[in-house]
Structure formats: structure tokens, C-alpha cells
Design a protein around this nucleic acid. Structure first.
Lengths: 120, 120
DNA sequence: CCAATAGTTTAGCGAACGCTTAAGTATCAT
DNA sequence: ATGATACTTAAGCGTTCGCTAAACTATTGG
């Protein structure tokens, strides 16, 4: 049975970021373009596994690549990562404002040195 | 070879964000604390499924909850999300600086046309 | 040409996911 | 006390994930 849409951009980007190998690849690409072999080398995985990680990264839009000769050169694609960063930032702006106002209504107001804010 | 330690904070946070239901729960919690039932209601999933999503969110540190009576009240926990946001931002600062000098295409041209044996 | 290099694709496996149902527990209302 | 509420836990099911091995397709260098 098909459940909720799990192929939207944000799903793919966060899924891509959820793996330490793929994050490592992104960090590597942050220092400049690299071949598939370059991306695989620091990790104890086969080239095949690296190709599959790359497929996830490309599907998410975080990385794009082009094949020149027998070498596939990969580079980072800013847009997708910015989408993810902005989703988090948008939520943060929401709850930071909230927590700022309701800070001392919560349970831990008793233990700490409590300074009074504007009227609750 | 780099170690592939799974279940590190960043893995858990990005994994938590990779599901649309969990992101929806985070958005809901951004508007204020909510019970497990409140979190489940918009999504047409069982309460049991909601509890399991909540477990993922709590394991990642994005949400924390406390039980008062028979109601578990959930609220957002800023630290974990900030960690994720900052990881992305740190990478961005890297490749944005790099993309400013568009020297990568030039580097390709050099390696192709240049056959000197000056310094290796 | 031949062999090495660089990557691709497919099949399969064990583990993790997301979900449901079903059977619990604890608290609140009457 | 009895029933309703609000979870909680366990079991099971089908799907997806990350990986390897193996067979395959280009390119490149001598």
C-alpha cells in the first residue's frame, strides 16, 4: 500500500544528509570537485557502494555530476542544501520567538535565578 | 579509512527530518506544545504510529516530552535543530567561497593542454 | 592490439523503517 | 467501581536501505 508522498524535495535532501558517508562526500565536495573514486577512497566501501550513495545525492539535488572520458566529476549544487537549511531556519524563527516569551512559565522557573520579564 | 559510526547526533537529526509526518509534527510543535494525540490527528495515522514517530524525534533530541497525568506533552528542543542547521551553514560557507573564483573549468583546460615537466 | 583504469548494473542479503493490530497500563470522570 | 481516555508495548508485515559480489561497458596508455 502506498503511504504518504515520500519523494518530495525535502524528504530526499534530509534522507541524503542522514548518512555519515554521504555527509562525508558532501564535505569532500565542499573542498572542490571530485571523481567517484575520490569520493569513495576515504571510506571503507566499494566503488559500487559509492556510486549508489552518489545516486542518492544526485536524486536529492545536492550533487550533480558529469562524465568526461571515463571519469565522472562531481560537484556540489547549492540550491538543494539551501532549501533544507531554510526549512530549519524558518522553524527556528518561529519557536525562538515563542520560547523567548514563555520562558519562565515552564517548569524550570523554580530552580534558576528567575528574572521577571514583561507581564505574562 | 574513516570510521562509519552510525547513530551520531547528526545522523539522528537528519533521519528524523527525513519523514514528512515528523516534519509536520515539528511544524505543529513550533506553534506550541502538544499532546501525542494532537500530533497524530492531522495525519490519519494510528496513535501507535505517532508514538513511534515521537520516539524517533526524541532520540534525535529535536523534541522532548514530559508526562503529566495521562497526557504526554511534547515541545521542541532547539539545540538539535541548530546543530543540523549549522552543519549545512558551515558547508555552505565553504563552497560559496570556492564558487566565487571560478577556476575549476580553467584547471581542466590546463591539465589537457599542458604537457610540461616543470614541477610535478 | 592488450591490459589497466573508471565506472555501471544487477542480484541478493540482512537490517532498519513505517505501519497496523492487539493487548496491555495508568489516569480521569461519573 | 466502572467506563472512557490517553497512551504504551509487542508482534508481525511488507518495503526500503546500505552493502557486497559479480558481470559488464566504456575509455586510456603502452
Amino acid at each position: 500500500m502506498l503511504s504518504v508522498a515520500r519523494n518530495e524535495p525535502l524528504d530526499l535532501v534530509f534522507q541524503a544528509l542522514a548518512d555519515p558517508v554521504r555527509r562525508g562526500m558532501i564535505e569532500r565536495l565542499g573542498r572542490g570537485p571530485a571523481s567517484v573514486s575520490d569520493l569513495a577512497r576515504p571510506f571503507a566501501i566499494s566503488l559500487s557502494a559509492a556510486v549508489q550513495h552518489l545516486a542518492v545525492l544526485e536524486a536529492s539535488g545536492v550533487v550533480r555530476s558529469r562524465k568526461e572520458g571515463r571519469v565522472r566529476t562531481c560537484r556540489i549544487e547549492p540550491k538543494a542544501l539551501r532549501l533544507a537549511e531554510r526549512w530549519i531556519a524558518d522553524r527556528r524563527s518561529g519557536w525562538e520567538r515563542r520560547l523567548d516569551r514563555l520562558g519562565d512559565v515552564l517548569g524550570e522557573a523554580v530552580s534558576k535565578g528567575k528574572r521577571r520579564r514583561t507581564t505574562p
